[in-house]
Design a binder for these strands. Structure first.
Length: 656
RNA sequence: CGCGGGAUAGAGCAGUUUGGUAGCUCGUCGGGCUCAUAACCCGAAGGUCGCAAGUUCAAAUCUUGCUCCCGCAACCA
């Protein structure tokens, strides 16, 4: 897949472009595809204009989650990681992604490089060993901050008493970098794109940074800290390990031949991992005395009907399925054109079809067909440009005005506006044909003008094909072939950089590039109620099949369930989800219960109604409020309902 | 009063910095054209620019207050 073009001059610009390394606990979905396609587009563009480009993607394979996921499937961890990593790689190959390197955090070179970095940071004094002192719940195997504890002692998870436990860990002095980070954000207004995200990060950093625990001793599946430190039970924290891939891919700490690619021009990421890239990563780099990346660009989510995609909702879009059905490059175009960078976008086959039929078919494909028809009928496909500027200078100027606006848009990640602007020349061309009516020109014997018009159209198409090439590599090569020229660094230089016209085109008839799509290709899952219920039943069966632990009746009776009457309800201030209830359990037993049901029930409608309460739950503290019980409710994709007695019962009635 | 972004035609967006005729894409309707993939071109309908008040000759744009939405943080016992 490597297509990296070497630079002819020594002074030429470097372009190191990265995607995140994808975590192998999931198979590739549209979000992964989106990030990767953006990066690929930037990489192809950057090669085309002659920059020395290095495009990196890969997989992140360490951490407890992977260890557990493999165990659950009865596989060795390495075997499992190999399988998922392979799925990512084959997906990108299917997507014609032109990555120069596919890194895996299980690569030997990566581990060595990550260890070298750890050592450097340690030697500098930025990593120090300390004990993580905290309130530890033995049964939950988790530390809790003081503020979460119930009555300053009990575990908020299970209610058992916590003990103060000291666990050793290595820490990174993130707090030392707070001011330096703020200075970096301040001096580099475009370091984080879109700009709204930069604000978010600045506010977060201003609120104070604590040192970061960067090793774990609770699992093995990770990179050991360097041998020199002689502390073999410590494994690097996954994010430290993962972020380092951007350096180790260039050979940091091993064969450093490619290190001249650093710093990265752009790290493309999804908005979920902004904090790691915008705070931890620059701080690590500062510690290593490395220059910082030029841009960290965070894009938004793809939704379905405005809802987040999730496996449980069954509305996940499989990118390969879409690419197979609608055409890979059409899908690439759609993803980049449809959504303003940084914002969320809604995926639907309807929207995709509209883009294909309207933008690609009507505006672009049909224009090429018009030219094929005209030039074939009138000039046998032989088109010359020498008189274009004599008759159509206005149109040429309009086209050039658009073309020159393109590059800055790309550097600002404004891919959707880039494509919008790129479509303007097509409109100029379509308009010109109608305005000057070549068929009339031919009837009137004004062949010269008709020829020049063909030349205008052909040159506009050539310009558009070149600038569209990074988004639709194969399609644009076909367009170029039909026009009789080649898309490469030379034609880019001549046509786009120098703004020259191609003198002559030999136009060849090709079948329509974007045949009209009349109907949705993939059957939409009816997705209405019956389907959902079916899915849920299956899930439940699966749960049983996998063996939800069986309990004895005695164990069941350990839980005290009671009917309670809500005598007072109010909203918890500043909380999106919580309501504060006073529940009467009879015998003067009035419980204060904090419940996360505000999104589905208002305080007023609850007062006087009955609920089912777990009465012997250890108290917990939520938003600083004590909660002495749990209200039973059932929640699914459509919302949450409380479990209530069918008819009113006396407060305090036992449920069994 | 935790931080930030937003509300403009049926949908999606631009315009707000620097007040001066409200614009683009898709969709709808009417017309034109035949080189073309029922495509292309022209035209029309459709908006009290979230609400209220203020400044001004003039407010989508500036000021103040309010409502609602969406991110981040917190949070589902």
């Amino acid at each position: 897949m490597s297509q990296s073009t070497s630079c002819k001059t020594t002074s030429c610009k470097k372009a190191y472009i990265t995607t995140p390394i994808y975590y192998v606990n999931d198979i590739p979905h549209i979000g992964h595809a989106y990030t990767t396609v953006i990066a690929d587009t930037l990489a192809i563009y950057s090669r085309m204009i002659g920059h020395d480009t290095f495009f990196l993607t890969g997989t992140d394979e360490h951490g407890q989650k992977i260890e557990e996921a493999a165990k659950a499937r009865n596989r060795s961890t390495q075997e499992y990681a190999d399988e998922i990593s392979g799925k990512f790689r084959s997906t990108w190959d299917r997507f014609d992604i032109t990555y120069d390197k596919f890194i895996r955090t299980t690569d030997a070179e990566h581990k060595l490089g990550a260890q070298a970095a750890f050592k450097n940071m340690f030697d500098k004094g930025d990593i120090y060993k300390d004990v993580y002192k905290g309130h530890y719940c033995i049964s939950c195997e988790t530390f809790f901050p003081q503020i979460q504890l119930v009555d300053d002692e009990f575990c908020p998870e299970c209610g058992k008493p916590t003990s103060i436990v000291e666990e050793e860990s290595y820490f990174f002095r993130l707090s030392d970098y707070q001011d330096k980070l703020l200075a970096w954000y301040d001096e580099n207004p475009e370091c984080i794109l879109p700009k709204s995200k930069r604000n978010e990060v600045i506010r977060f950093v201003e609120s104070g940074l604590e040192d970061l625990s960067v090793t774990r001793t609770s699992f093995d599946w990770g990179v050991r800290i360097p041998e020199e430190i002689n502390d073999p039970k410590h494994v690097m924290y996954v994010w430290l390990d993962a972020l380092m891939n951007y350096l180790t891919a260039l050979g940091y700490g091993t064969d450093e031949a490619k290190m001249d690619q650093w710093p990265a021009r752009v790290h493309l990421i999804g908005k979920d991992i902004l904090r790691f890239h915008a705070i931890y990563w620059p701080a690590f780099l500062m510690s290593l005395d490395m220059p910082l990346p030029k841009h960290i660009a965070a894009h938004g989510w793809w939704t379905r009907n405005g809802e987040k995609m999730s496996k449980s909702k069954g509305n996940v879009v499989n990118p390969i399925e879409i690419a197979d059905a609608y055409g890979l490059e059409n899908f690439r175009y759609f993803m980049l054109r449809e959504v303003p960078f940084g914002g969320d976008g809604d995926f639907s086959q309807r929207a995709l079809m509209d883009r294909i039929n309207s933008d690609l078919g009507n505006d672009l494909g049909n224009l090429l067909n018009r030219l094929i028809g005209m030039s074939g009928k009138y000039f046998d496909g032989d088109v010359q440009s020498d008189l274009v500027s004599k008759y159509y200078q206005v149109e040429l100027n309009e086209m050039k005005a658009s073309i020159t606006k393109l590059e800055p848009l790309l550097y600002d990640m404004q891919l959707h506006r880039y494509l919008d602007e790129l479509w303007r020349p097509l409109s100029v061309a379509n308009k010109a044909i109608d305005t000057y009516q070549p068929w009339t020109l031919m009837k009137e014997g004004r062949e010269e003008e008709a020829m020049a018009l063909n030349g205008l159209i052909a040159n506009i198409l050539a310009n558009v094909a070149i600038m569209l090439h990074p988004v639709m590599p194969k399609t644009t090569v076909n367009i170029a072939k039909s026009l009789g020229f080649t898309i490469d660094g030379d034609s880019y230089q001549k046509i786009i950089q120098d703004g020259a016209l191609l003198d002559r085109f030999t136009i060849e008839k090709i079948p329509p590039l974007f045949p009209r799509i009349e109907e949705m290709i993939i059957a939409e899952t009816p997705k209405e109620e019956p389907k959902k219920k079916d899915e849920k039943k299956e899930v439940k069966k699966d749960d049983k099949a996998e063996g939800v632990a069986l309990i004895t009746i005695d164990q069941f009776f350990l839980t005290s369930l009671k009917i309670g009457t809500v005598i007072k309800a109010e909203e918890v201030p500043k909380s999106k989800k919580l309501l504060l209830l006073q529940v009467d359990l009879g015998d003067d037993d009035i419980r204060q219960v904090v419940s996360g049901i505000k999104e589905w029930y208002s305080a007023e409608e609850l007062v006087g109604t009955q609920v089912c309460l777990v009465a012997n739950l250890k108290p917990a503290k939520l938003m600083g409020l004590k909660s002495e019980g749990m209200v039973l409710a059932a929640k699914d994709g459509d919302g949450l309902v409380l479990m209530r007695p069918e008819k009113p019962k006396q407060s305090g009635t036992e449920v069994s």
